[in-house]
Design a protein around this nucleic acid. Sequence first.
DNA 1: GGGAGATGATTAACATGTTAAGTAGATTTC
DNA 2: GAAATCTACTTAACATGTTAATCATCTCCC
Lengths: 178, 178
Amino acid sequence: MARKKSPNETRPAPAETGPPWRAPMREFSRSLPMSLLRAREAVMRQFRPSLRNHGMTEQQWRILRALTAVDEIEVTELARVAFLLGPSLSRILRDLEARQLIERKAAATDARRAVVSISAKGLKLIEAVAPTSEAIYAEITRRFGSRKLAELQEMLGVLEASLADMASADNGEIEADE
Amino acid sequence: MARKKSPNETRPAPAETGPPWRAPMREFSRSLPMSLLRAREAVMRQFRPSLRNHGMTEQQWRILRALTAVDEIEVTELARVAFLLGPSLSRILRDLEARQLIERKAAATDARRAVVSISAKGLKLIEAVAPTSEAIYAEITRRFGSRKLAELQEMLGVLEASLADMASADNGEIEADE
DNA sequence: GGGAGATGATTAACATGTTAAGTAGATTTC
DNA sequence: GAAATCTACTTAACATGTTAATCATCTCCC
């Protein structure tokens, strides 16, 4: 049942207590990665039950959803659009193909490339899920506010663009002292 | 747009082409879940190499990081603070304990509850990673803007709160027509 | 045109996400 | 006060995230 509460009256410290060592780092739960993670989880929690009822995961939905927007598409490009890493996509395509929700063929000009498209069965599945999905999205928009939602997405896009060419400044230590 | 793509001159359609069926759904790549996912990935991509150099994953870092803020903490509360599901936390704690980065003991009043704390070795590891981590965070803040960063986090918090009590409206279909 | 290197995709190996089931200890109830 | 129930945690099982390695094809260059 998700982690929607619990009075927790027994724990020793609220986890917001002063750190035992000098704390140069920002309050943990307010870091940007945590904020983004929690927000996304709050959103996805709304969609998962419906998807699950249709025997589909979030990623499988992303793929089928992306496939409805094109006639056919190469695997690499699909990975970019659905924002999945190659290995994940490979596995999922194998399963979706086995379930006959997609079709795959080799590209005409380049035998390395595979071209994927959604099947009639896949389209039917999308059409079955879409109404519920739309209703949920509408409710989220209603609650948060259409204006604010657009603003938020704009900021997220700017953030992403801001970091696009940032080189990670990792020092070379391979293991902690040992 | 972001996503420093590549010329990709060979693909058949840019994936932004008109859908073959009537498309009642919003442009896929601009959905809220995708925006959040991409923004978070853009941020985490900066931290992962440094963490990896210290032999640690993002989640392991979250746990150790959370532990530095308290003297000791129960597992359930730690799951809440580090935003991890119970099963994930169980596995990670087992590993961190084997690596002697944390210590675990049974709670005094309730034998079911386990109390976790960071070890001296764990603290040393945190101290080794913290400077790089801080530098990365500072650079992100500099690029995106301190003001905007605070605004963004405020909006994310409001979004999360907006959806806190939303009941998922899943219909009961268990499988698509077959 | 053949070999070195680049590219598209998959496989491998390990860590985590997610839901369900299991286990041991605590709490309630009659 | 023992059975029923609840609670904290763990295990199980499967799907995905993540990095590295592999495999097949393609390109380039001599």
